[in-house]
Amino acid sequence: MTFRQGFAHNRGALAGLAVLIGVVVLAAAAPVLFPFDPWDSRGAPLLPPGGAFAFGTDMLGRDVIAGIFHGARVSLFIGVVSTLFAVALGVVIGAVSGYFGGAVDDVLMRFTELFQTVPSFVLAVLLVAILTPGLASIVLAIAVVTWPPVARLARSEFLTLRHREFVEAAVLSGVSTPRIILVELLPNALTPIVIMASLMVATAILTESALSFLGLGDPNHISWGYMIGAARAVFRQAWWLSVFPGLAIFLTVLAINLVGEGLTDALNPHLRRRGATP
């Protein structure tokens, strides 16, 4: 079974992919469909859903659906960019640790362990608060607290692959060390890392929403978490202010998780095919 067949076989993954594409379209279409600042007041405050405003308005008369569309941009941006940073950092540390072993490995792994023990969300809150809230500080904070699992995974992959016979064969053939890392090790280590990264995007989006909910969002960009946090005082009267952005976060995260699981299912049997004779 090829990767594509495996993935297409998984209905959940396909549904997730469809929703995810929808969110991307939302983000892309935001400036076209709602060509105004989502922070602007557009009508009477606290209008319920329906009528001129499909998802209603908030206490300052801002259009909720416009916020949802524009907020998709922030969620996706933070999710993807912070994951990229975290994965880059984690893979470098893990690869060096796993390939060279010894004292280097010891030091790097102690360091990683330390970061894993620190209460990550509290650290993220601190970092954003101290560096002043903004897209850059949020990306940095999320990357700083999420790289350790990547490093551990990359390390264990490199460690086992390092002693695989095909890597030893490449050494004997005179292949250079950089080429061995790039051609022999990395492609074989990548699959589990890609799977982990796909799930990390979802976690990053959740973390960003929690930060924004606590008022640590970028003040220049509207985000789903901020919308819920800001509407907390009136949420008994205006349920739509929390329900719609919450659904947006929920569906996006769910979709990414489903795609991630689809990747896991489709990629793993391919790797585990060896030696299964009774």
Binding site: L206, I228, N257
Partner: peptide, 12 residues
């Protein structure tokens, strides 16, 4: 439940 933000679950 794995996909729901904690604060949102609380509010709901």
């Amino acid at each position: 439940f794995y996909a729901m933000p904690i604060f949102w679950v609380g509010l709901i």
